[in-house]
Simulated assay, not measured.
Amino acid sequence: MSLVILCVGNLIINGFIAWTVIFLPLVMLPLILLSLGLSLILSSLGVFFRDIQHILVVLVQGLMFLSPIFYPISIIPEALRPIYYINPIGYVVEDMRNIFIWGNIPNWTWCIFGTIIGSAVFLLGYAWFKKTKGAFADVL
């Protein structure tokens, strides 16, 4: 819904929607794969360790404030930028900003590298979930 509002706002302000919007699925793919993999791992761990849900709330909130969502990464001091480049959400946010607002093409290096990392995390999460799902009934 927010993307529709962003496109309408961009159309009203700029008078057009950038053609680079077609890259949206490619930019989102690393984040989707990473999210799926981490959710599979954390959901299976949540069955065994109930306190994970409380820890995750704090971690996700901290990750949001450490991501360049409300500010561009260019305002971060040069000495602290390597810390921000560890965060995979930062790349996706910057690429989304580039394709929607500025009309630039995404960073292909990150798209490829992020998709590889996201795929690896997804496969690990899927394997972990399949391995642990047999014990869910015993614990619950």
Rank of each mutant, 00 (worst) to 15 (best):
S39T: 15
L123A: 12
S74L: 06
V139F: 13
P25S: 10
V139H: 10
I99W: 06
I76R: 05
I89R: 00
V60H: 10
G114I: 02
L63I: 09
S39H: 06
I99P: 01
F70R: 05
I73G: 03
V21M: 10
I75R: 03
W110Q: 05
L3C: 02
S119L: 15
I52Q: 06
L11H: 13
G62L: 15
T20H: 11
I55Q: 10
F65C: 04
L140W: 09
A127S: 10
M1I: 06
L59P: 02
V27Q: 06
T115C: 14
V92W: 13
I83E: 05
V92L: 13
L42R: 01
L3T: 05
G37F: 06
S39C: 07
W108E: 09
F136Y: 14
I52H: 09
Q61Y: 12
E78C: 03
P30W: 02
F23M: 13
G125N: 05
V47G: 01
S119V: 11
F65L: 15
L80C: 08
W19A: 14
N10Q: 13
V92A: 12
I12P: 06
F122S: 02
F100G: 00
F23T: 00
N98L: 11
I101V: 15
N107G: 14
F100T: 01
Y85N: 03
L40M: 15
N87S: 12
G46Q: 04
I5V: 13
F136A: 01
L140F: 14
L24W: 08
N104L: 11
W110K: 00
I69N: 03
V47H: 11
F48L: 10
A137F: 14
C7F: 07
W128L: 10
S119H: 02
F122R: 00
K131T: 13
D138V: 01
T20W: 09
W108P: 01
I112M: 12
Y71A: 07
V21S: 08
I12Q: 07
L31S: 15
N87P: 13
N107K: 02
I73Y: 07
I55M: 15
G15Q: 02
Y91T: 04
G62S: 15
T109W: 15
F136D: 10
T20V: 10
I12F: 07
W19N: 08
N98W: 04
A127Q: 05
N107L: 03
W108K: 00
M28T: 08
V4G: 02
L29P: 03
H54S: 13
I86Y: 05
F113A: 15
L140V: 08
E78T: 12
L34Y: 04
L40G: 01
A120Y: 11
P25E: 09
P68F: 11
I76G: 06
A127G: 04
M1K: 04
V8T: 04
L24P: 13
V47R: 00
F23H: 01
P30A: 09
